[in-house]
Amino acid sequence: MKKVLLLASLAILPVNSLLAANYTIDPGHTYVSFAVNHLGFSTMRGKFNKQSGSLNYDPAGKKASVTIEIDAASIDTGHEKRDQHLSSPDFLNAVEHPTITFKSTKVGWSGDKLSTVTGNLTILGVSKPVTLKVSSINCGEHPFNKKQVCGFDASGSIKRSDFGVNYGLPGIGEVLDLQIELEAAKD
């Protein structure tokens, strides 16, 4: 029985070891989106159209880190006038603070799968810790370009007043639900 387990471990370890690498975020397959309550009536959704960053993933060594930089002015709620307002000093102040960043500081594992990513989210120059729950993470060879690719889905929530984004409170919701779907290709 011990021999079987040993052989099985040897078979898995190289695969996990192969995954350990730096990955660069594929902006075409990365979505950073949010949902916020609108005046108590409904949920308003939006996303950011420009982001970049990197992922370091080493499941064998139980190490991972992620950095995402988001262009604040690329906010897109499907309504040009509202997007201009959200970019203005009333909300994201995109001219003065053009980049929203997330840099992980700690990760949690469930078996050999990444389960949580805790990091500092910086909006308007204010950094606050945020924990994202990873609902799925998969790595493997891309069927078309044959590159090694990792992708994960994660979600969490923040209070916008923690970052000094106070305009429109309490009518426009205080809590933003964040959703990140990310793909990254091995460097």
């Binding site: 000093p89 102040n93 003065e96 603070h97 308007l124 120059g125 204010v126 970052f163 000094g164 106070n166």
Partner: peptide
């Protein structure tokens, strides 16, 4: 309008 907070100290 702004609340009493001055943090972060934005241009506004």
């Amino acid at each position: 309008i702004n609340g009493t907070t001055l943090s972060p100290l934005t241009g506004t």
